[in-house]
Simulated scan of single mutants.
Amino acid sequence: MQTDVLLDRFLDALAPLTPAAVWAHGSLAGGDYQEGRSDLDLIAVLDGPLTPRTAWRLGVLHARLRTAPLAGLLHCSYPVPGSLDDPARRHATWAHGGLFTRPVSPVTRAELHAFGRVLHGAEPGELLPPVDPAELAASVVRDQRDFWRPAVRRPDLWHQDVWVDLGLLTFARATATLRDGSLITKRRALDELPGLGAPAEVVEDIVRRRYGTPGTDAGPGTARRAGLTRAYLGPAIDRLVESYS
């Protein structure tokens, strides 16, 4: 698989920085990974402080991988030992072709404890504090209320596949987490959406694009799909947030 080749190249390139651990989360760890469609979500715990020189070396590392198959889908955060105690702390992260900072979210932390895949070094439980269920639930509510609900008000976004897919899938996964603390895959989320009242033709379209043969059985038009998704998702998020705030 091209995924294994890329991961081997990445781990070899990262070895001179002597990481304490490298973990996979998301679909790569959760059993719903689709090569060429899914992101490769990684956490690499560096064995030392993030100096300007280290940041430069990380940029060079990813620049050298950029022409490798699937490299554009590889995203990695780079915390250092002792920095993972604070969920709000921002860590160097490579994603979407650039280096920036962001926190390791409570959802990511919970995934790592539940089913994180160790690619190198220590287990997540050795370096990563456990996630309090109340903290996890509060984070999920904030994400739905402060990110996704305002996004629904922007019609231009929903003409893109990624917004339709992630908007609906994230809502279904948030519902499951708030309902009983479970962390479900995107495949499971698709199974949940009809029961949550999501528009059937949009859900079927996502299934075709994620799991079917590309280019077959065209789904609803872009404008109709965007309209159906926004009409459903706005009130659904409002109800979810009201129920669990």
Rank of each mutant, 00 (worst) to 15 (best):
W148E: 05
G31Y: 02
T229M: 13
P69R: 02
R142G: 11
T213S: 13
A189C: 11
I206Q: 10
V107P: 01
I43L: 10
D180I: 02
G221T: 07
E192T: 03
A236C: 07
T229P: 12
V140R: 03
G116C: 06
I237Y: 15
F115I: 01
Y78I: 11
D191L: 09
R57K: 11
I206L: 14
H91M: 06
F147R: 03
F147H: 08
I43W: 02
V80T: 13
A172F: 10
L17R: 04
L7R: 00
D146E: 14
A174Q: 05
V104K: 13
V118C: 14
R102S: 15
L128A: 14
A122V: 15
A68E: 15
L233W: 07
T185K: 02
S245E: 04
R239M: 11
S27E: 01
E135H: 13
G59W: 06
D143G: 15
F10V: 01
L128R: 09
D132Q: 06
R53G: 13
E201A: 09
L70E: 00
R9H: 04
V22T: 06
R64T: 06
A226K: 03
L74S: 00
L168T: 13
D4M: 00
R109I: 05
D47L: 06
R53V: 15
T3L: 04
W163I: 09
A95R: 05
T213A: 13
P87G: 13
G59N: 07
G97T: 10
A88R: 04
R173S: 03
D12Q: 08
R53P: 10
R89N: 08
K186L: 07
P69F: 02
Y33V: 05
Y244C: 10
G212E: 13
R153M: 08
V60F: 15
D238V: 03
A21I: 11
A218E: 15
W94Q: 05
R64S: 05
L112T: 08
D180A: 09
R154F: 07
R117Q: 03
E242F: 01
P155Y: 08
G221I: 06
S105R: 11
G125V: 09
L70W: 00
D12H: 03
A172R: 02
T54D: 06
L183S: 07
V141A: 10
V140M: 05
D4S: 02
P235D: 15
A134P: 07
L58P: 04
L178I: 03
T108M: 12
Q34H: 09
D39G: 03
M1Q: 11
L136G: 12
P106H: 11
A44M: 07
A189I: 03
R117S: 01
A176K: 05
V241D: 14
F100W: 09
D39H: 04
T67Q: 08
L74I: 00
S38D: 01
V164M: 12
G48P: 12
E242L: 06
T18H: 14
Q2E: 14
A20G: 14
Q144Y: 02
P69S: 12
V152I: 08
P199N: 12
Y33E: 01
R239A: 14
L28P: 00
M1V: 01
A55V: 14
A92L: 11
R225A: 15
D41C: 03
L40P: 00
R230C: 06
P150T: 15
L6I: 00
L127Q: 08
W56C: 08
A44Q: 05
G59V: 09
L58C: 04
V107Q: 14
G116I: 01
A71K: 00
G116N: 07
D165A: 04
R102D: 15
R142Y: 12
